[in-house]
Amino acid sequence: MKIENNYIKYEIINDILIGTYKAKYIDLDIAKSVVSLRKKFTNNLKYPVLIKDNNTVKIDKSARDYFASDAGAQGINAVAVIANSVYKVTLMNFFIVVLPPKMPVKLFKSEEKAMNWLEKHKVIFHE
């Protein structure tokens, strides 16, 4: 099961939602589009989420605030982020420290370890 737009590609594998960013710069409009697509794709159900990206260089202030808001975080019960460079670790750490998320968030270098950690946060029954 997959869906995508210009900014992100989503797929659900083994009850884990995987989001791969395509956008280099994320502003508020892109952030809203990304969240809207996720909600549509998951039918507003809760999933643990794995975030991957190939290109993202910048997430601006308004986009960061939106991701950290109730609307932006709705439908996510844990986030694992693949951060395999100093640049991405710095970007995500800043995000986590300045706008503490409402759900567990952890950075991983390896996708396998990230998926194992997300296993613990799976929703067993969707109401």
Binding site: D60, K61, R64, Y87, V89, T90, F94, V98
Partner: peptide
């Protein structure tokens, strides 16, 4: 601006840019 390298110095630049945005608000 960060370079295409996205190296350690770029990560510092990006951190300072985000700090500036927070301080501005």
């Amino acid at each position: 601006e960060v370079s295409d390298e996205l190296d350690e110095i770029d990560s510092i630049i990006m951190g300072i840019n985000m700090l500036g945005e927070e301080l501005k608000e």
